[in-house]
Structures are given as C-alpha cells and as structure tokens.
Design a protein around this nucleic acid. Structure first.
Lengths: 223, 223
DNA sequence: ACACATCTGAACCGATCGGTACGGAAGAGG
DNA sequence: CCTCTTCCGTACCGATCGGTTCAGATGTGT
C-alpha cells in the first residue's frame, strides 16, 4: 500500500517535471486512452450504488466499465479512489436534487423539494433503488444477497404489524376515519430506519430524540 | 453447499431415528457442549450488528464467541443460519421495544413508544450504534471502514448545508424564531435516509410519496 | 471398565479478494 | 521511418474468504 502510493506519487512528480521542463505540451503524449473515462465512472457509480462498496468486486466493476483491471487502476488509482470519484459524480448527478432544494425560496419549499426529490431519486426505474450515500455500505454482494433480502422482509413484516395495529385504532375511533394505517405504519418505519442510519453514523442520542419528537408532530389528532 | 445441507439433514434424521428407536433418552448422549450456546449467540449478534453480515467474517465471529469454527458449524449450521438466529435474538432482545410499542393503548402512544424506543435502542452506549435490521447489511468490515466513514461524513456535510439554509430562513422570518434549524435539518436527512432504506427494500414510489407528504405535516408554520 | 457419541483444535480446501509485473500493441512527435 | 510514451491484456501475487475433514480428547450411559 505504501509502495503503491509512493510509486504513484513518484510517477506524478516525474510527469509534472517533464511537463515543466518542456515548458508546454500540446496534448498528452503517448497512446491515448481507449475508453471514455466519464462513461466508465458512470457505470462504476451504478455498480457501487447497487452493490455497495464491499459488495462490488473489482471484477464486477471493471466488467461493467468494459475495461481491464489495469486500465481502471491507471485511470482512477484504486478501488477506494474510484468509489470517492463515483460518490462525487453521484452528488452532482442523481443526488443533485439536494443542492437544488437548497435554492428554493421558502423553508417549506426547501423541505418539500428535498423529500420529494429523495423519493424520485431513490425510486427511478432506470437506476438502482435507494441512495448511494446510504447503501454504499448497505447493499451487499453475491454472498450477502440472502441477508439483505431477509432484512428487507424483516422490516416489511414489522411494518405490517404496525399497520394492523393502526387499523385497529381507526376502527376504535382512536385515529381519524380517513387516516391511512398503511401509510402511517410506513412512515413510522421510515423514520425509525432513518434514525438507525443517523445513529450508525455517530449522531448522538439527544439530537435523535429531537428528531423523533419532531416526527411525532405529523401524527394525526384523535379522530 | 448441497453436500453440506444433505449431510446435516442426514445427521438430524439419523439422530431423530435413534431417539425414536430407543423411545426415551434422559440427556443428550456423548460429550456435552463446552460453551454456553446462548452467550455465544449473543456475542455473534453483536458482531453482526456492528459489522453487518458480509463484514463479519467467520474469524471475527468465532473469536468473539470464544469457540472454534467447527464448534460454530456444529452448533448453528453455517454463517447464514447463525445470522438468522442472531436476528431472532435481536428481535426478542434489543428490538423488543417494537412489539412492546404495539401494546400501547392509543395510536399516538404506539407511535411515540416506537420512535422513542428506536432512539434508545440505536444509541445505547453498551451496544453497537444503529439497528441490526438496517445495517445488518449497512455496516462494513475492515476494508469497508473507510467507505462507511466517507458516507457518514457525506451525510453530515449535507445536513450542515440544510442547517445553514434553515438558519437563514429563521433570520428572514420564514420560520418561527424558536425553530431549531439543526433539528429540522437532521429531521429532513433522517426521513430521506429512511426513504432510501425503504426504497432499497423494494417499497414502491407511490407509497414513499405518501410517507414524504406525511413527514411534511410536521413542518412548522411560517413564523 | 467399556463402547460410543460428541466436542475440539488445527490443518487444509478451492474460490475469490484487491492489487501488480510484464511484455506486446498502438498512437503521437520528431 | 524511428523513438518514445502510454495503454491494454494476461497471468500472477499473497491474503483472506466460507466451509470441511480428521485425529484425538472428553464426558455419558451401560
């Protein structure tokens, strides 16, 4: 690893010196790259998005990018740098709804644009489901596929329990008659899963407590 | 893999036949197990919780369980079954707040108990942060550590952008003066991340759209 | 005391992981 | 043309993956 970084750094230094010594160079010398680096990065982003960082093997990545391991290594450094660049591309591409939302005129419009953008971006039919920023290390490779499906089923099962419980509340008049138990149950599970993501990232308990209290303000009054 | 299942199934069949043939057996014959299977499962659960399914290697698991690979294989079948049993234990243990919440008398209390329980369970100082049901395939092993940290920083960075934007809204009177921009920004990011988790699990767009609209009902009025 | 079922530790399996070394092919500049 | 630089494909590296086999230690029921 140290050797690698050292070698690469040395190569870049040498290249810079060469360029400086000859003061100006029209184009890059040597055989030009035989593939579109931008398109390759786009494809790598998709793979990371779908399979996560660890779940995406170099074989998966390079075969999707239609280049060899060596070409990937030369063009992007290593797997970690490739991931970093893919994340940048994701931020400016599929996740650009985030910065767009920030430019909305009112706070409510900011919030609305952001959440609606998140829904659209995570459920586009032509893209992997979910958000690279979350499942970059949520998704799984071949061996983890079963585990991932098991957990998705686990979450759905518990959502169903809440839906049933809330349906009972509607029947009892404890919720408004027009309340949607399925949507409310999904809402609870969504907020709880979001809280788990935040917690895994190190957000402290007090802050998440405020999030939970805030989320409960959306709860319908007794019907 | 087929050989494995076949062998194990054959062994269980043989054991059952033996037991049936001798009609009654006081205790299990042969050398008794030299470790506490319950405690071993508890420890395995922790490792899966912290590192995810793929991120937890057999070496990680067995060394945490203080048993050998062979003992684990004999007692739990294989890694996948071990994970399934760990998830069951998690459901009845750290995640039992879920079923407890279902027993609350009113819908609002159900919702409150569930979200507050989620906050407590995902931020216990003596347990891994987050929820096994989410990061069972969210967390990462040794090689994925950098990626996980990168993504956590990425989410925090964008949360900060929203905080700044909402602070501006407070200054402009677009939000109530007592609104907490940090908490509101965290709330938005939490819901968006939760939506991403749902989407990754296959929840369709229309349903998530209803979730987003529901979440926006918690938004404070123009101040 | 004996036979037997089970546990245990270590060595080992093929497969795959991320990452490299090398030699030939191929375009750019003189 | 020749030379130089870079790209590209292959074959390979050590490490680790999940899983298995086997010999020997160990406790139980007869």
């Amino acid at each position: 690893m140290d050797r690698t970084a050292e070698t690469r750094a040395a190569a870049e230094t040498r290249r810079a010196e060469t360029r400086a010594a000859e003061t100006r160079r029209k184009g890059p010398v040597g055989r030009p790259r035989g593939f579109d680096a931008d398109e390759a990065l786009e494809r790598a982003m998709r793979v990371f998005w779908e399979q996560g960082y660890e779940g995406a093997s170099l074989t998966d990545l390079t075969s999707a990018m239609n280049i060899t391991r060596t070409s990937m290594y030369a063009a992007f450094g290593n797997k970690e740098e490739l991931f970093r660049k893919a994340l940048e591309r994701y931020t400016e591409g599929p996740a650009s709804y985030g910065v767009r939302a920030l430019r909305e005129p009112t706070a409510r419009q900011v919030a609305t644009a952001f959440l609606h953008g998140a829904v659209r971006a995570t459920t586009r039919p032509d893209c992997p489901a979910g958000c690279l920023g979350v499942q970059g290390s949520l998704a799984a490779g071949a061996t983890g596929g079963h585990a991932r499906d098991t957990l998705a089923a686990w979450r759905d099962e518990h959502t169903a329990h809440f839906r049933d419980r809330l349906q009972q509340a509607v029947d009892e008049g404890d919720l408004p008659a027009d309340a949607d138990p399925g949507a409310l149950a999904r809402y609870l599970m969504t907020v709880a899963n979001g809280i788990a993501v935040q917690a895994a990232g190190g957000v402290p308990r007090e802050e998440l407590q405020r999030v939970a209290d805030l989320a409960l303000r959306a709860w319908p009054p007794v019907g």
